[in-house]
Design a binder for these strands. Structure first.
Lengths: 165, 165
DNA sequence: CACCAACGTTGGCGCGGCCAACGTTTTTAG
DNA sequence: CTAAAAACGTTGGCCGCGCCAACGTTGGTG
């Protein structure tokens, strides 16, 4: 065997997971900066946007839609309610639930936030022409969809390490 | 004017920044799970990998290469030194510095981690065929490179909101 | 010599993402 | 109808990551 200087396994540097994380870090910095101009954070926007999109709902339902934990939802609703961007009222049909409703002020604020965020997206995607932006969105969507509901629960039935394939 | 039911601005739902963040969340969960099997976290791996790649260096230098803050670097080195995966020795040529060196045990551990992580990447990218994986990596790389050094500092001279373009 | 820069270290902060537990209310089974 | 199970809101807590400010020490530069 001729031996030779075979650069043996040549480990995979710059992992895709790290790349993704770096991109997310950048995106979040830009978005946080934008939302910060309105004194809000990502959770606040997520809640307002979901309310605007799907209408009033219980905290638990909103948590399911946004991916925000029930306990964090309490605080988020508190924040927005204090600022009168959202209203929390008991559900007469089910006394366990609160119905969260976006207020007029909340709607107006959301319009402003949407503008801020649209600009933020543009800043984030600045280096990519439209075609590539679509490509990226498509790829990420497929990734996220695939791992979809596995939104948590790394325990029950998970490979975690798959040898061969 | 014929009016018509124009769905007026039709705000951009599912922001690219959010998509990216979701993907990163998924990736991090998978990676954390993998590293957790070795009782380590992402910072630990980043440090070990960088040491293996670029050789011994001061904590500050390592922090610059990995993006880990100096203060967090202290803790990370502490952790790894405790486990004898890394050695911290004073630099004789500059008594401000510590020289961090990866140990033999650290090297062996790193090999294991690399295997774990390779599998993790595969899990993460599972839904994408090889071409798409390359595409994704290319796009993310361009994004990250562009925002490159702006690795922090959202203050000094930043648009944050660009109207037109 | 005085000054400033770099270094390691300590201590702290905020956000996002989690989990466990409790009391209340509703639904479902027996 | 009643007992068990489930859903809900809430409290309190935990961890990791990403940050920043400050200090004492050491090294370079004017």
């Amino acid at each position: 065997m001729h031996t030779g200087d075979s650069p043996p396994p040549e480990r995979l540097r710059v992992l895709p997971s790290r790349l993704t994380n770096q991109a997310a870090l950048t995106a979040n910095r830009i978005v946080d900066h934008a939302l910060g101009q309105a004194g809000l954070r990502r959770y606040h926007y997520a809640l307002l946007a979901t309310l605007d999109e799907s209408g009033p709902a219980s905290q638990a339902a909103l948590g399911r839609r946004t991916g925000i934990d029930r306990s964090d939802m309490v605080a988020t609703v508190n924040d927005l309610a204090e600022r009168h961007l959202v209203r929390r009222s008991p559900d007469p049909d089910d006394r366990r639930r609160n119905i969260i409703t976006i207020t007029a002020a909340g709607g107006e604020q959301l319009v402003r936030l949407d503008a801020l965020l649209a600009a933020a997206q543009d800043t984030f995607l600045a280096p990519l022409p439209d075609d590539d932006r679509r490509q990226l969105i498509d790829l990420l969507t497929r990734l996220v969809d695939h791992h979809g509901d596995r939104t948590a629960r790394p325990s029950e039935g998970w490979p975690g390490l798959r040898p061969g394939t």
